[in-house]
Structure formats: C-alpha cells, structure tokens
Amino acid sequence: MTTGLDLCEIDRIRHSMRNPRFCGRVLGEWEYEQLKERGFPPQSVAASFSAKEAFGKAMHTGLAGFSLREVQLMRKPNGVPYLALSGAAARLADGWQFSVSVTHTAATAAAVVLGERKDAEI
C-alpha cells in the first residue's frame, strides 16, 4: 500500500487562475469540462491540483514522469471522487488501484490518495 497527501492554498490557485491558460495547462479534458460546468470554483480547482500532487507522492515520483493533465480528479454523479489516469500516469500506475478523498476549507484544499497493488493479498 502507498499513500500520498497534499495540501494546497486556494488563494494561490485563485491567483494562478487569473491566467486564462492555467486551467487548460493543469486540468485534463474531462476534468476541465466537469469544472467548467460548475464555473471553475477555485476551491475545486485547488482540490484537483492537490489530487495530482497526492498521486505523485503516492507513486514516489513527485510531479516527475507524468503530465498533470494525465491525472484527472473526476466525480461520479453522486459526488464520489475518483482518479482517471491516462498516458504516462496510467503506465506508471499499471498494476495499482487507487482511492482518493478531497476536502477544502475557505483557505485550503487537501487530497489523500491511497494506492494498493491489484494483486495484493487481503
């Protein structure tokens, strides 16, 4: 089992979002569309960014070896979050399954990613 945890300042993301290209550079296509439908709330964009960082920490690579856009924090219709991986992130995570949890306050967003080998014995 592996764990990654990240905490992100929402004001830092809000400031970055002043650049109209920021969301397109860090959010994957599906993630972008989900957040666009909701008006790109800075706390949700920060939670997505935090999930990407937490994934990198869980994989012991930091943000190296994959593109931020390849790790997407998605939400099921009932709001349950999950990670959708593609490209190098999916190759890096081959053989692993993940759970993700995100939360935020007025000032910070946080994400925890738990990874477990698919062939791990229970």
Rank of each mutant, 00 (worst) to 15 (best):
V45R: 06
V26K: 01
E121F: 08
S44Y: 08
D11M: 05
G115E: 07
E70T: 11
R91D: 15
C8D: 09
S67V: 12
G87L: 12
S99G: 15
G28S: 02
V100F: 07
A47I: 02
G115W: 05
V112G: 08
A89Q: 08
M74K: 12
K36W: 01
Q72N: 09
I10A: 04
D94E: 15
E9Y: 11
P42E: 08
Y32F: 12
D119P: 00
V71G: 06
V45P: 08
G24Q: 00
P81W: 07
Q43A: 15
P77I: 00
G62M: 01
P81M: 12
C23E: 11
L7G: 11
G95R: 11
R18A: 13
G39W: 02
E33A: 09
F98L: 09
A58G: 09
R69N: 13
R25Y: 09
E9D: 15
D6Y: 12
P20K: 04
R21F: 05
G28D: 00
E31L: 00
H104S: 04
G95V: 07
D94T: 14
F22Q: 02
A58R: 03
T103P: 03
G24L: 01
G79D: 09
E33D: 12
L7T: 09
R91E: 15
T61Y: 02
S101K: 12
F40D: 01
Q34V: 03
M1Y: 13
L114T: 06
E31A: 02
A90M: 13
L73H: 10
L7I: 15
R117G: 07
L114H: 10
H60E: 15
F49L: 09
G4E: 10
A111N: 04
V100A: 04
S16C: 13
V71R: 10
E116N: 07
M17E: 07
T108H: 15
R91W: 14
S86M: 13
R14Y: 05
A54P: 06
V80P: 11
S99M: 09
R75Y: 14
H60T: 14
P20G: 00
C23L: 08
I10Y: 01
H60F: 13
V113W: 03
G28N: 00
A106P: 03
M17Y: 00
T105D: 03
G28M: 05
F98S: 10
G24S: 08
S44F: 05
I13P: 00
D11R: 13
K76A: 14
E121Q: 13
T108L: 15
M59N: 06
R21E: 13
Q97C: 14
A109T: 01
V26Q: 02
C23T: 01
L73D: 06
L63R: 08
M17P: 00
R12F: 11
